[in-house]
Computed example of a mutant assay.
Amino acid sequence: MGLNFTKEQRLMLLMICDLYKKPDNREFNAELISRAIVGGHDWAIEWEYGAIFPEKPDTDNDVSFVTDVLDMWRFIEHGYSKLSGPDRSKIEAAVPYRGKDPKFIGFDGNNETNLMGIAQMMIDGLGRFESFKGRSLNSHSPSVARYSAMLKKWPDIRNKLHSREMTADEIIELLSLS
């Protein structure tokens, strides 16, 4: 993976970014940070700004997993939107709890927060997968096992989608997994 900041580097970079904001919108208290550093009270900085120090940065595997999930769901949603009424009814009948207007609902905000954060960064921060913009991305229930099962089958389907949309049967196949 590319960049991997230490806590100290993270604080310095964020303080530099803060300088580019209007004085009334700055988030860091330079006097508090100076007093903590001079007094040897490093802990005070973590207490005050703990949220900027993640336990661990995102892993390449997690970023790849979220990217694959978002890619798969973008195709599912777009493919479903292009289907006829009878094909939509076929999906709903085959997968009654997931087949009616299937949408990507995100990751569990309690147990999959790192994955939810990666998805939010991709969508809202980087402007990727914009069709998901504006959603909470909190599924309120575990989703990794389901998405993992779907992703096992996804490459077989994805490789066939060069110049066509997903079929009802392909969508059923994915939505039925988990």
Rank of each mutant, 00 (worst) to 15 (best):
E55K: 14
A30F: 13
E170S: 03
L161Y: 01
N29G: 04
D101T: 14
D62S: 09
R35F: 08
P96W: 06
E112Q: 09
G117Q: 13
N138Y: 08
G134F: 14
L177R: 06
L13A: 05
D101Q: 09
H78K: 06
I91M: 06
N61W: 12
K90G: 01
S148E: 09
I37Q: 05
P23H: 11
N114A: 06
Y80E: 01
D156C: 01
S139R: 08
I105H: 07
D60Q: 12
E130F: 02
E55L: 15
E55S: 14
I33W: 03
K153H: 02
L126T: 09
R74Q: 10
K152I: 07
G50N: 08
H41N: 14
E112G: 04
D87T: 07
R128I: 08
K133N: 12
K90N: 10
M72K: 01
I16E: 06
F75H: 11
W43F: 12
G134H: 10
D42H: 08
R26F: 05
P57Q: 10
E8M: 07
F129V: 15
D169Q: 07
P102Y: 03
G85E: 12
A36W: 06
G79E: 04
G85M: 11
Y80W: 12
K152D: 11
D156H: 07
Q120E: 12
K21E: 10
K82W: 03
P23W: 08
M121E: 15
D60K: 13
E112Y: 06
A51E: 14
G134V: 11
R158T: 00
F129K: 10
A145S: 13
M121V: 15
P96N: 05
N111R: 12
L13E: 07
G127Y: 09
H140T: 10
G127K: 04
P23F: 08
N111C: 05
V69N: 05
M12F: 14
P102A: 04
L174Y: 01
P102W: 04
G117A: 13
D156I: 06
E130K: 14
S178R: 11
I33P: 03
L151I: 02
G117M: 13
W154Q: 00
L177A: 12
K133Y: 14
P155T: 02
P155K: 01
R158G: 00
S89P: 00
W154I: 01
L175K: 00
H41Y: 13
L177H: 05
A149G: 05
L13K: 11
M166L: 02
N110L: 12
I33R: 03
S64C: 13
R98I: 10
G40A: 05
S64I: 14
D108G: 04
G2Y: 11
F28H: 01
L161T: 01
N29V: 05
S64L: 13
W47S: 10
R26L: 06
F28Y: 09
H140I: 03
P86T: 15
E31N: 07
E112D: 09
N61K: 15
L11Y: 02
G134S: 11
N114M: 07
N114W: 02
P96R: 08
K100M: 09
I172Y: 03
S143D: 02
T59Y: 14
A51F: 14
S141F: 15
R74D: 04
D62C: 06
S81D: 10
R158V: 01
D58T: 15
